[in-house]
Nucleic acid binder design. Structure first.
Lengths: 246, 246
DNA sequence: AAGTGGTCTAGACCACCTG
DNA sequence: AGGTGGTCTAGACCACTTA
């Protein structure tokens, strides 16, 4: 995607890609809500004045990008972080003991403040921009496993408060979709090993200096616009970060 | 992929998927070598007695799986770990300072031995099976960054010696392809944060107890057969592990 | 100019889900 | 039965590479 060179533009865009862009715009504009079905391929073909196969290829790519989900016999649906079986679509932690990842959340703080320089840079904003900062724990059973520090652009999350967060059931990204119309569609993570500082060690019930996985996640919405910076510290004594390479 | 339930089989396999299986078998049998081109879609359509579009769809999936690479106007080629621009296809380390990842290799040891229980289990073999164990360093400039311990099934890597490894230019997986006909198709990684032990600390020029990224990689060849277990310890002081989520 | 992959179409039929 | 996505075909034409 990103290219340091002069990024020679495509200069030729096939029809199905133009259709893909049009569908993406509809999604972005919220014409179809997360979890709902979009119009049938046949209908869209007529509307865009192309053949059904061309619409099909556009939708194929959108499904590959995880923006849409096809269900044979039923229709094509707008992808959502809520209600899916996979509650934590972006969380790659797996318990050593196998089985599912059932986690309890505990909100530590939630305050509106000004973005430090590094946060502002990541979110493509300016230093001092209004942001929401939250911190929370994820616990497996009684054991704290993840300490997250989350930064969100204040402009997009106007009514976000600790109470609303505490009340909401289901994954946080589901709430962002439903309550704020902000959909996370992809993310980049930078992973390092770091020693636990004193405060973190206490929160995660570890000794200071214990090695932790530092996972810095930058999440993007439509148009590759960054909308969340999340700094996670993972205890990997009973869990590991799972990744697949192709 | 893995399903705890009875894994109800597909019961219906479309034509293009059967074609995909046939092409995969040809690849596995070595009918077409890595880097070479495979026959044209038209030719394969005649040979398999299906339409060109059906062959096309099969090849589309194989390209998505990174087994084949399409090049417009030239043909479709067998993917290879060698000669590609991306020398380290599976290595996700990125330098903080940006730029390319140029790494020097230094082989520490290479011996034939018997598989310990955990290694045997990972490689789907029996405890005591013949294996090759190697250890090596990767250095960025003069700084050691990665300490790898690699386990390979002895049966598949008969003539592998320290000398042959030292002589070979290009990525190790390229050598495995060219010299032993073993092609890594995909891999799973389990990542944790661990403290450096005394020996590791010396090799990586760090203090004992310094946090390291532990990356356990299990690589698979055709038919999801595990053929390499690699335990890496990454120093993340000037590099990070990069991951993309969709 | 010839060969390859890439796009687009139109139509037929199959598999799956719901009323 | 009717609608949806999924498969398969055949043919036309476009874009890219090589000779």
């Amino acid at each position: 995607m990103v290219d340091a060179s002069s990024a020679a533009e495509p200069a030729f865009s096939p029809l199905y890609r133009q259709v893909k862009v049009m569908i993406t715009h509809e999604l972005q504009a919220g014409a179809w809500k997360p979890g709902e079905s979009i119009p049938s391929e046949q209908y869209l073909a007529v509307r865009f004045k192309v053949s059904q196969g061309t619409v099909r290829k556009a939708i194929d790519e959108l499904a590959a990008d995880n923006l849409l989900v096809r269900r044979q016999g039923k229709g094509t649906f707008v992808a959502t972080h809520a209600e899916q079986q996979i509650a934590y679509r972006f969380l790659r932690l797996v318990p050593d003991a196998g089985g599912a990842l059932g986690m309890e959340r505990r909100l530590l703080d939630c305050r509106r403040t000004r973005a430090p320089a590094d946060v502002a840079r990541a979110l493509a904003g300016k230093s001092g921009d209004a942001v929401v900062q939250l911190r929370r724990l994820l616990l497996a059973g009684a054991k704290p496993v993840v300490l997250d520090e989350i930064w969100l652009p204040g402009k997009l999350f106007k009514g976000l408060t600790a109470d609303r967060l505490a009340d909401y059931k289901g994954p946080m990204y589901g709430m962002f979709e439903a309550e704020f119309g902000v959909r996370m569609i992809r993310a980049e993570e930078k992973i390092r090993a770091v020693p636990a500082d004193v405060d973190t060690a206490r929160l995660l019930a570890l000794r200071p200096g214990a090695p932790l996985l530092s996972v810095e996640r930058l999440s993007f919405t439509y148009g590759d616009k960054p909308v969340e910076l999340r700094r996670g510290l993972y205890s990997t004594e009973q869990h590991f970060y799972r990744n697949e390479l192709n």
